[in-house]
């Protein structure tokens, strides 16, 4: 059974002018957001993106941009309560 989450929320952007078609983003993306087309990588399904930031971090040409973050409600609540950036800090025994 396929999982699908909210649509039109991901902050992922591609500057195709900078893309050289090296294919690194296809390699690291855990959700098949990219495909190779005419020697360049294109975003084929943005709604599958989980904003993990793997593609951005591993793009040698800085063609990708995303606001990376954790898709974790507990972390976001903790961030609100403590006034810090939500991080995947599970030391209180909840989440991941």
């Amino acid at each position: 059974m396929k999982h699908s989450y909210l649509k039109n929320v991901s902050t992922l952007r591609m500057d195709s002018g900078k893309c050289t078609g090296c294919g690194m983003c296809l390699e690291v993306c855990p959700h098949h957001v990219f495909v190779m087309s005419k020697g360049k990588s294109i975003i084929v399904d943005k709604d599958r993106c989980i904003e993990c930031g793997a593609c951005v971090k591993n793009c040698p040409f800085k063609a990708l941009e995303v606001k990376p973050g954790v898709g974790c409600a507990a972390a976001i609540i903790k961030g609100w309560l403590t006034g810090t950036e939500p991080s995947c800090d599970c030391s209180d025994g909840s989440c991941c």
Partner: peptide, 8 residues
């Protein structure tokens, strides 16, 4: 494994 920060 499939939620994003913006979505949550």
């Amino acid at each position: 494994t499939y939620t994003s920060f913006s979505g949550v």
